[in-house]
């Protein structure tokens, strides 16, 4: 599950174009192409969207219409650390909103340059309601969370980084 994103700043335009040209997707399905782009870059860089427009022969507006409509697609790169809290009904019953709030507080308490490295998102039910409440931290799914465990796991993410 752990995703390692390319650093978009380090990707040149020809490389992006090459990536778009090399996409093995049905040529009428923009959404599958966008999934491939997002899985590769972590978000949909504007330059890639332009190459997609060329390849699919559709205006950029059509592409941004789709990107902004669906929750799954990002227009900005996520931070190095991605915290995704499930906010399905069952998780909500088990205080997922408190977890979300904790994640935001955790972020706010970090030094400013570190704050930019942490992204917090929520997801609408991943269908594992028996393990509620749950959250992904950097791709790893943590079941049966409570405030204490969640705080520990969040701190692990940052302390690991300090060691590195």
């Amino acid at each position: 599950m752990q995703r390692i994103y390319l650093n978009p700043a380090a990707v040149s335009h020809p490389e992006m174009k090459k990536f778009v040209d090399g996409l093995q997707v049905e040529n009428d399905n923009l959404i599958l192409a966008l999934h491939a782009v997002e899985n590769h870059f972590g978000y949909i860089p504007r330059e890639v969207a332009a190459f997609l427009a060329e390849r699919f022969r559709i205006p950029m507006a059509r592409i941004y219409e789709v990107i902004t409509f669906y929750h799954y697609f990002r227009t900005k790169p996520p931070g190095r650390h991605l915290i995704t809290v499930c906010n399905g009904t069952t998780c909500w019953l088990f205080q997922s909103e408190k977890l979300l709030q904790m994640a935001h507080e955790f972020k706010t308490n970090l030094p400013e340059e570190k704050q930019r490295e942490v992204s917090i998102e929520e997801v609408r039910c991943i269908g594992c309601c028996a393990l509620a409440p749950l959250a992904y931290i950097d791709g790893q799914l943590h079941p049966y969370l409570n405030a204490e465990i969640f705080q520990q796991e969040l701190e692990k993410v940052i302390s690991c980084e300090d060691k590195a």
Partner: peptide, 24 residues
């Protein structure tokens, strides 16, 4: 084909739009 996180795409006509690669 994949969705992309939109509840409304469970609705038939929205699903079709999404399947065609458009907004749902």
């Amino acid at each position: 084909r994949l969705g992309a996180g939109a509840y409304v795409c469970g609705e038939e006509t929205a699903l079709i739009a999404s399947l065609e690669g458009k907004r749902g």
